[in-house]
Design a protein around this nucleic acid. Sequence first.
DNA 1: GTGCTGCTTCGACGCATGTCAACATAGACG
DNA 2: CGTCTATGTTGACATGCGTCGAAGCAGCAC
Lengths: 123, 123
Amino acid sequence: MSNAKVLPLLEPADEGAAPCCPPLTERPFSPEEAETAARMFKALGDPVRLRLFSLVASHEGGEACVCDISDVGVSQPTVSHHLKKLKEAGLLASERRGTWVYYRVEPSVLAAMGQLLTVRSVA
Amino acid sequence: MSNAKVLPLLEPADEGAAPCCPPLTERPFSPEEAETAARMFKALGDPVRLRLFSLVASHEGGEACVCDISDVGVSQPTVSHHLKKLKEAGLLASERRGTWVYYRVEPSVLAAMGQLLTVRSVA
DNA sequence: GTGCTGCTTCGACGCATGTCAACATAGACG
DNA sequence: CGTCTATGTTGACATGCGTCGAAGCAGCAC
């Protein structure tokens, strides 16, 4: 069934502006900021993980069952391994519904990473 | 001798908004798109490289001399190694001016990566 | 020229990571 | 209960990657 919440990516004012890091161009990153941000970039630094993330992010309703994503070229244990990595990095969230496990994109993630790459435009 | 084939990611012909990949949320990435985009993410997936990139990106004039960035906690050969990695990924460009070597951010990179993380806003 | 300084490259070490086959777990269905 | 399907976990392997010291190059100063 199709649920009505098909746009989980747009949180107008709920998320607290993603307290990760300032834009990369604003000031030199502190070691801690770099550690935090690098964890996210590293999680997306693998082609298989990037395809999995893109597959989940672009799937209908913002979530996808593992059964839907078995054709990325690696074995299923490897898929599970990568999904776990993405979850540990805070990029995905998983939920078991009966037989299947669904993964969805953590809403504030894209906004946070997008903010990282914001070009310092004139105010 | 300087060979010109050091930029496998960006075609310097046009540099019109970096035709790398669509937003991650738009459609599942193809293997090739994932390979290309993952290379950029992986380059920023190391804390030291992220600090170096941020240092260059936030430096005055958009460029920084290597002599300015010697306090990231690793030895200078390691700094040079990471800068080379960033250059190979198409994120930085280097230029020797006299005694010193200056690195600057490849302009279209931030825009390209920002586009990757664009949230599918209302049409 | 000789020396000095800044940066890169080389060689090597050790740790992290991607991958798979095999096994283990969770729920559904009889 | 038993069995089947769907995921996750474990162990092992090979490869990749970050790090350093030492050596090599490129300009500047003398």
